[in-house]
């Protein structure tokens, strides 16, 4: 490690003096943007799918919707997110003739991908809520959907919040593959610094450190949120 000082100096030159940090900031911003908006889309899709899957299936429409949802979940859980990105960016979107910036494609794909995972998490959460809650709502004359939205889902979300936090953390880390379609994330920024200073050791270490910091902050935020939601459990 004799020349570590030199490596550090090279990195600093590229990072600060040559404005590499602006690239890092944009990269961080993109990473968080993809992860957070992706998760938001995922939660919406996941909740809808979960409701369809637990909906009583007496009639034909719920049955058809259910098999559609299962197909969707099977597709997106069955392929790696890199493959989904590549297929969407280079095959599906050109085929239907839509021209989209790479970043938005990433948000879309990560949203669809996490939707498949969140649907299973959400389904578990819904099933963990006592069936009596639904019965009580129905007995009061509320419809299935209203009871679901006003009573069951809020309790389910409280139960699954730690798992949803996991999903967000996984998303943040998975975004490191978006460079496959040319979107600029943290990895792209540090790779740029490394390539231009002919020195990769320090940039990649710093990159790892930034990922750890981001994930720790997210974990902290989720803990706080969880504590707030647990208000109805506490004796006061």
């Amino acid at each position: 490690m004799g020349n570590f000082d030199k490596k550090l100096q090279k990195f600093w030159e590229m990072f600060y003096v040559n404005d590499g940090y602006t690239k890092v900031l944009t990269g961080l911003q993109n990473t968080l943007y993809i992860a957070i908006v992706g998760l938001a889309i995922g939660i919406i899709i996941g909740t809808v799918i979960a409701i369809v899957e637990v909906f009583p299936k007496y009639k034909r429409l719920p049955k058809i919707l259910n098999s559609l949802c299962r197909f969707y979940v099977g597709m997106f859980r069955g392929t790696p997110v890199v493959v989904q990105l590549l297929v969407t960016y280079y095959v599906v979107l050109p085929l239907i003739g839509i021209n989209m910036p790479a970043l938005n494609v990433c948000v879309l794909v990560f949203g669809l991908n996490s939707g498949a995972y969140v649907s299973e998490i959400m389904r578990g959460g819904i099933m963990s809520v006592d069936a009596g809650q639904m019965e009580a709502g129905r007995a009061l004359g509320l419809s299935y959907q209203v009871t679901m939205l006003k009573v069951v889902i809020p309790q389910a979300v409280k139960n699954i919040l730690p798992t949803l936090g996991n999903e967000l953390i996984a998303l943040v880390k998975e975004t490191s593959v978006v460079s496959f379609v040319g979107a600029a994330d943290l990895y792209v920024a540090f790779n740029y610094i490394g390539t231009n200073s002919y020195e990769f050791m320090v940039p990649y270490l710093v990159m790892a450190f930034i990922y750890i910091m981001v994930v720790m902050i997210i974990a902290l935020l989720i803990k706080t949120m969880e504590r707030r939601l647990r208000k109805s459990d506490r004796r006061n």
């Binding site: 006592d130 009596g132 019965e135 009580a136 007995a139 009061l140 009573v151 809020p154 109805s232």
Partner: peptide, 18 residues
């Protein structure tokens, strides 16, 4: 029709989040 039939359960089933 259920609005005109009140029901009380063995396990109370109050909404825990309200």
């Amino acid at each position: 029709h259920r609005r005109h039939m009140g029901m009380v359960f063995q396990q109370f089933n109050l909404f825990n989040n309200k």
